[in-house]
Write a protein that binds this DNA or RNA. Sequence first.
DNA 1: ATGCCACCTTCAAGGTGA
Length: 260
Amino acid sequence: MKIASWNVNSVRTRLPTILQWFEAARPDVACLQEIKCQDEQFPKEAFADLGYHCAVHGQKSYNGVAIVSKYPINDVLRGLPGAPDDDQARYIEAVMTVGSGPVRVASIYLPNGNPIDTDKFTYKLNWMKRLTAHAKDLLAKEEKLVLAGDYNVIYRDTDCWDPRVWADDALYAKAVRDAFANLLWTGLTDAWMAKDGREHHYTFWDYQRGAWHRGHGIQIDHILVSPQAADVLQGVQIFKEARAMEKPSDHVPIMVELDA
DNA sequence: ATGCCACCTTCAAGGTGA
């Protein structure tokens, strides 16, 4: 089964582009981020026409995440546990009912955190702590687990074209990279590192400053998997060409294939 | 230090992102 992650930067504005990519890449499950709409505004019919079910956790104007799946979707969890007053729609998790056994999938839109030394940065670090705590609980289930999303973390120096540019940015701050390491150390495997690992393979290019044409991207979208999923991980692919589509998102899809 | 672009809401211009 193929599981993709894509920050689409508005599902309504991007719908033709998204559907075109779906018909070409044919993901079985897709984790979407920054859908930027409320649940009832999500274009479920368009995905149903292609044979997909949808689970949505949206909000007005900003953020919003969804899971789109060829498999029946069960046990949906909306919102990351640990902060009942958090009203930002950045986490949805559900179980894909697959013939060979269930696969738990989460779509993650980790906070940006800029500028550093503000409450936005504190919120990001707290959110990462909550995600790490929740990941520990999920790993204890010893299931096939896939945590896919826009992590807003430049983890390696070589995940950007020039780390000096990002020195004072919340995507590259040492505390943020340390927090991402803590998440990995719970026992998760980064699919890109396990099955490819090449440097300077980006998933985001800013709309500004000619970033795409200059090759000034960053890799901030990741798919993390449990040991049970890593055992059946067949490969990983970044769809760089999606950045050159009509009306592109500033992010491109990343997709894993599991033998499940 | 700020805007660059593209999205949001709602028709004008400010908020947000990375």
